[in-house]
Amino acid sequence: MSLFISLTLNGEAREVSIDDPRVTLLDLLRERLALPGTKKGCDRGQCGACTVLVNGRRANACLMLAAGLDGAEITTIEGLARGEDLHPVQAAFIEHDGFQCGYCTPGQIMSAVGLIAEGDAGSDPERIREGMSGNICRCGAYHGITLAVQEASRRMAAKDEGGAA
């Protein structure tokens, strides 16, 4: 089999050849497109380390067949910052010690970006913990993660209001 799919990957249009339908989006990113920022933890949907945005929504790249993604817009951790300017969620994770070893962090950050866009949690810590429960942190950095998501959520809401005014 040989199949070409078009992707918008971190803002850039890409034509990608898929020679085997078994390739997941996660393996495509890490092994074939030199984007190892997205991590593989369980490879079964159970840990959230592989979280990316697909058409603006958070998803587990380990359970997505790449062959099905023609036309999709994919954002990975490598695509969040604007040059040296960190995304507000990235900045908040640093400020609030939202990680220890860092392995789960790309997934946590992408999941938080997705959660904030969903708009259900706001800065309510209980809703944030529930909304982030698909991301496991083996180091137990959950307290800092919750604070970081609260902070980023507030800042992004304030910025949106500022922009609208």
Binding site: G45, G48, R57, A59, M64, S111, G134
Partner: peptide, 9 residues
């Protein structure tokens, strides 16, 4: 059920 990511898929 499941997680935010899984429910999207």
């Amino acid at each position: 059920g499941a997680s935010g990511q899984l429910r999207n898929m």
